[in-house]
Write a protein that binds this DNA or RNA. Structure first.
Lengths: 188, 188
DNA sequence: ACACCATGTGTACGATCGTACACATGACCT
DNA sequence: AGGTCATGTGTACGATCGTACACATGGTGT
């Protein structure tokens, strides 16, 4: 029967900050920004509550860094997904894959992105992140089509993914391909 | 110096319930679902706090009714906007107007819609509302184009509006028209 | 005319949250 | 080797929220 101090030993834990950010993204994905609290993040990161106020000035700061990290992690994946594209036919396939989650991004990632969009609507500090994300994703598409078409494809992807994420009835892959091919003027 | 009872007189206030719902939508538009509380709604509707718990079983119930009301109010506006459309050229114009807020719906309405989308992602009870909304909006487009194209146009609208709502740099009307015309196979 | 109950009103309570802060500890520099 | 300070830890506090509930009041059906 030792007194079992239960005093958790101090932990040596470099890059704890990064782990907290990763945990924050998990929490956002599962509970939404509305359900994201210091305590939930701390639990997810397996870190005491006080640690959050040490590494971040507040919840807003933490969310901002989490969203920034997520966007900066998604961008290269997004870009890499179009690496092998050579012609318009390839582009149609790549976009179709993207919409159906057969790229590096799954439903969870898109959900976080939408949380970011909505949060940015009311938090100007997050506008920087969304602007940068949109600029980069459009730039990728501009490697294959003119800027105006790029805007169109970008918006179409956004809409298709959103409907795909929300709707219970999944859209068939063939249908998506037809739609994308239509906008890009590619004959099936 | 009367004692000034300050006891607010009971008010005769039929359809107070509807006013609360309208106030809830206002609050959602301004503060998001995350910032929507009983007290804020009560203040916006100029109604005592206790009144909310009388007319609604809880905040979730209230939000659900508010979103339902909003969707049912938007649908006829959306449908009416396409009433005068005769050919594909008209359709391009109508969609362009819609994206640029020259229809019955403004940024505020779209913001509420996005709040609904995101809320529905985690609240199955709201799925019914989003499903119904999407079905109706697609049905409108199917009056002019085949079902697959309708899905495409619907998604494109969603994406364009979202980018328009979020981005600081507004997209030109001409560019939008070009994009929409492209998807619909209409020559400028 | 009158009683009843749907509706209106104010307040209180427990839960949870963001944040502050006092204290502990050991990695790192000299 | 030893002191220092960045980092780690636990707890407390005030604010706010959802909700419950006791009581007031007058429209309405009889």
């Amino acid at each position: 029967m030792t007194a079992a101090p239960a005093r958790s030993p101090r932990r040596y834990d470099p890059d704890r900050k990064n782990r907290i950010i990763a945990a924050a993204i998990d929490v956002i994905a599962e509970h939404g920004v509305a359900g994201t609290t210091h305590r939930r993040i701390a639990a997810a990161a397996d870190v005491p509550l006080g640690s959050l106020t040490y590494h971040f000035t507040g919840l807003e700061d933490l969310l901002e860094q989490a969203f920034t990290h997520h966007a900066e992690q998604m961008s290269p994946v997004y870009e890499a997904h179009f690496d092998r594209v050579r012609g318009r036919a390839d582009l149609v396939e790549a976009v179709t894959d993207l919409v159906h989650g057969d790229a590096g991004a799954d439903h969870r990632d898109w959900a976080v992105a939408y949380e970011l969009y909505l949060a940015a609507l009311r938090n100007p500090a997050l506008r920087t992140v969304t602007e940068s994300w949109m600029r980069r994703s459009r730039a990728v598409l501009e490697r294959f089509v003119d800027p105006t078409t790029a805007r169109g494809v970008d918006a179409l992807i956004e809409g298709l993914v959103m409907h795909q994420t929300l709707s219970t009835a999944a859209v068939s892959r063939t249908e998506t391909r037809t739609i994308v091919a239509g906008l890009l003027g590619v004959q099936p």
